[in-house]
Each structure stands twice: as structure tokens, then as C-alpha cells.
């Protein structure tokens, strides 16, 4: 078990609960898909897991330790182990930094004692980009390439866990499948938590799944089992709504 969420609730204002008593665990080497639509609280849950917000109640544990955003020493170690990939590759890369600066940021900020140049080069190669990309700027790349750069930034510090927020849903179909393939390969070395509304993508990448509806978990378990035999009506509706190719 890498990460566990224990009876976590969250609200921005007193009257509206965004997350309501959510519990889940992330097992080592089992990718977890968090599935939900807008208003399900899935992005909020991800922000809590990233230590960007604190739960109103409940605890998140990393290994044995409770996630405490005010403990700087702990957060440093946590950030090193847990990295993120965001949905929109156009807004997740600083337009004024070159690719080297973008990918090297975790190494610099977390004082990771490895040769930065070599580490960035290796990260670029493992996401399928040429090493000389590091001297260029984000606007010179396509959406799919940008997402590869964002993934390179997430893996450069060799984290145990990658949290991805709709990491492929802004991409075109043919690009999407290639990025999913890339994530699948990376998933062999680290664990992936994928927040998505796209069941097809989640099914391609995740062994476990959690279905969120309006801040509550309505169903969770092994992906295959849930897709083949959904128990909750909302899960069934989600599965039926997924666009499929005509036979």
C-alpha cells in the first residue's frame, strides 16, 4: 500500500460538501482509476492527494505517515515520491521556460543530487522525444508532444507514484492511444493514479477503479469485475454512455 485515504471529506464552504467520507487505497504496482463526471469531486480528491489542499476531515496516509502539508521535511520527501501530470498540456507548461527548465524543475526544487542534464535527457528519451528537444520552447511542440514533456517532468525525479488528472482526454484519438501506451510502459516501473471521465482509457490502464458520484464513492474494486458486472445504477449508466464504435 502506497497511499490510503481514510474517511476524507472536503468542503470549500460550510454548506456544500465536495467530498463526503471518501476512503480508498492505492496498492503498489496496481494502477487506480478514479472515475467521475464534473461535480463528482474527482479533481478535488486529486488536489488533496497532491497536498495542495487539506481535507476538512479524515486523513491521507503515505505509507505509515499521515500527509501533513505543514511539515516541510515530509512534504519534500512526499513530492519526490509523488508527481503529477495535468489535463491541458497547453497550460501546464510555462511558455517562457525552455524544455530543459521545465523538466529539470523537480530536480532543482527538490535538490536531487543527480546530474540534471543527463537526467533530463534520459526522461526525454523514455517519453519518446529526442534529447535536443530540451533547448526548445513549449510552443514549438504539438499537444501530444507537450503532454510527453509534462510526463517527462513527472518521471524525472523517479517517483513511486504518478497522479494524472485527465492526462489524455484533451488529446486527439490517435495521440491519445500513443500516450496511453506510453503511460502503460511507465506503469510497469511506477504506480499510476488516473483521474478520468473516460472509462475506455481507465480500462486500458488501471487494474483497480473507484467510481465517484457527487462526492461519494458509489462503487470500487477490480476494474474488470466492475466493468463486466456493475452493481450501482450510476456505474451502469456511465458504462452505457461510453461512446463505442458501431459493430
Amino acid at each position: 500500500m502506497i497511499l490510503s485515504v481514510d474517511h476524507v471529506s472536503f468542503s470549500y464552504t460550510r454548506d456544500r460538501q465536495v467530498l463526503d467520507d471518501v476512503s480508498l487505497t492505492v496498492q503498489r504496482d496496481r494502477n487506480l482509476g478514479i472515475v467521475g463526471e464534473s461535480g463528482s469531486g474527482k479533481t478535488t480528491l486529486l488536489r488533496l492527494l497532491l497536498g495542495l489542499n487539506r481535507p476538512t476531515s479524515g486523513t491521507i496516509r503515505f505509507g505509515e505517515q499521515a500527509l501533513d502539508t505543514s511539515d516541510r521535511g515530509f512534504m519534500r520527501a512526499y513530492r519526490r515520491s509523488v508527481q503529477a501530470v495535468f489535463q491541458d498540456p497547453y497550460s501546464s507548461l510555462d511558455p517562457r521556460q525552455n524544455v530543459f527548465g521545465i523538466i529539470a524543475e523537480p530536480l532543482q526544487s527538490l535538490d536531487i543530487a543527480v546530474p540534471h542534464r543527463e537526467a533530463v535527457e534520459a526522461a526525454l528519451v523514455s517519453v519518446g522525444l529526442p534529447p535536443d528537444a530540451m533547448n526548445r520552447y513549449p510552443h514549438e511542440f504539438s499537444g501530444g508532444q507537450r503532454q510527453r514533456i509534462a510526463i517527462a517532468r513527472a518521471i524525472v525525479a523517479r517517483p513511486e507514484l504518478i497522479l494524472a488528472d485527465e492526462a489524455v482526454s484533451a488529446l486527439d484519438l490517435s495521440t491519445r492511444i500513443r500516450i496511453v501506451e506510453l503511460l502503460k510502459t511507465l506503469g510497469l516501473k511506477m504506480t499510476l493514479v488516473l483521474v478520468s471521465h473516460d472509462l475506455g482509457v481507465v480500462a486500458s490502464l488501471c487494474q483497480d477503479i473507484v467510481i465517484l458520484e457527487r462526492g461519494r464513492i458509489v462503487e470500487s474494486g477490480k476494474t474488470r469485475q466492475i466493468l463486466d458486472n456493475p452493481q450501482h445504477p450510476y456505474t451502469r449508466k456511465l458504462i452505457d454512455s461510453a461512446p463505442r464504435m458501431p459493430a
Partner: peptide, 19 residues
Amino acid sequence: DYITAARTSGTSWPQIVIK
């Protein structure tokens, strides 16, 4: 998002302002 990405990369607020 690149500010959020910087935060999850461990970059401190003063550094985020400068960088």
C-alpha cells in the same frame, strides 16, 4: 496549471514568483 505543476515539483512560493 504550470503553477500547480511547480508546486507539485516542490518549488517554493518565492521561487515560483521569480521563475
